[in-house]
Amino acid sequence: MARNWSNAVIAVLAPLPSIVFYVSFLGQYPSAREGDPLFSIWTWCYHHPLFLANIIFFLNVNVLFWLVGLLQSCHWMIDLYWTVIPVLLVHYFATHPLAEFNIWRSRVVIVLTWIWSLRLTHSYFRREKWQWGAREDWRFNDMRRQCGKNWWWISFFAVYLSQQVFLMGICMPLYIIHGKQKQINIWDFIATIICLTGVTIAYYADTQLDCFVSRNNELKRLGQPPHPTLDEGLWYYSRHPNYFGEQLWWWGLVVFAWNMGSGSAFLGALVNSLCLVYVTILVEERMLKQKYRVDAYKRYQKTTSAWIPWFKATSAREHKQT
């Protein structure tokens, strides 16, 4: 219990250096805009909003979170802050003095980002049994074992610096949306529907997965064999509907940015999707290492779409039987 509360305090205090610095900048930017040499640092912050966001990310997230992770021997905080950093970024981009945007588009995107964040934060704490930092991502554990005594410095690049590349890349649409005035149009409506659809699919997929895990835990407690595979609800049509919903959200933001005339914004979402393909492979390999579910999961793989929800395929054996 004491560790849970101490981790909660650490998590709440962690972004304060960035917030305090940025609020100080907002208080000084009128002088910065005039180029007053007494406020040269504020002048630079005024003229380089995207570069400033990356520097703040590097110092406050990469360096500070890494040091906390080393002290605790557990890099749990970056997993939690995946759900928070996009919210901080969208407000940063919207409030920076150089921001220029359609107020209604901005409000819609900010609300959508909050909805996405609340959904993912709820999913995180539900999965972690409402504990702060109870464990770190299993992929980090695997890398820790592989890297051995070198993990302390490799973790900075593998866990934190790589996250900056991914997060800043997929959040570029939030910057683009707040960098140009353009009348709201039908594409904004389409992008909104895509984002909301993605969040909804991810929420129901995670809820169904949580119910499945809870049922299996109860069966184990009663000494009964657990169900090997979740093959109902959204999981009947896709092996990873939660991943599909999450990707749909990010590609919805890309449509917002494309509508603003920035087609290159798709690069971040593309890299993120490709990385998730690799994560999907790792997850399924992990599933197949559990003996009680090997046969059932192999059948599941043969008949069920990996990401995009689709109708069941008929296996060769079933075709012969008919």
Rank of each mutant, 00 (worst) to 15 (best):
P30R: 07
F51H: 08
A296R: 09
C195Y: 00
N272G: 11
L267D: 03
D36K: 11
F25I: 04
G198K: 03
A313E: 12
W5Y: 04
G169Q: 05
G133W: 01
L196C: 10
W307S: 02
S31G: 01
G27A: 04
V12T: 07
V283L: 15
L282I: 14
Q72R: 14
P225S: 03
V283C: 15
R107L: 08
S40Q: 09
Q290L: 12
G268T: 05
K180N: 12
L88K: 10
M143R: 12
Y81K: 03
L219A: 13
C195Q: 03
L89Q: 07
Q183M: 09
L253V: 05
V283Y: 09
Y243P: 06
G133P: 00
V277W: 14
S273P: 05
I56M: 13
V283I: 15
N7W: 00
V111I: 13
F311S: 12
E318Y: 07
N217A: 13
Y160K: 09
T303N: 11
W249H: 13
G69Y: 00
R145Y: 14
T43P: 00
P309V: 10
L89M: 10
S106I: 02
W249Y: 14
R126T: 05
W187H: 09
L230S: 08
L52K: 08
L59C: 15
W138Y: 13
W138M: 13
L196Q: 03
I186E: 07
G233V: 06
Y203I: 05
T197M: 05
S162W: 11
G27Y: 02
I154F: 15
I78L: 15
P86L: 15
Q146L: 15
I103M: 05
S40A: 14
V159E: 00
R33D: 02
V213S: 10
E285S: 13
S73V: 08
L67H: 09
P37V: 03
A53P: 04
V294M: 08
N272P: 07
P30Q: 10
Y160E: 04
Y297V: 06
V159R: 00
G261Y: 00
Y175P: 01
D79Q: 03
W250C: 04
H227E: 14
Q72W: 09
A306N: 09
V23N: 06
F58K: 00
E128K: 12
E284R: 02
W250I: 01
H48G: 03
L274N: 06
I19L: 15
C275E: 02
T121K: 03
V109S: 02
L219Q: 07
V84Q: 12
N272V: 07
N7L: 06
A94R: 02
A94Y: 01
D231N: 10
A205C: 01
M77H: 14
L112V: 00
R221I: 07
H227T: 12
T304S: 08
W114G: 04
M168Y: 14
N54E: 08
Q208N: 10
F65C: 06
K129R: 15
H227C: 15
R144H: 12
L253C: 05
F157D: 09
R145D: 11
F189S: 15
G27T: 03
V23T: 11
F266C: 06
L50S: 11
F266W: 13
T314Q: 06
V165L: 15
T121I: 06
I10V: 12
D188K: 03
K302I: 04
K291P: 01
T197W: 07
M168K: 06
V277M: 13
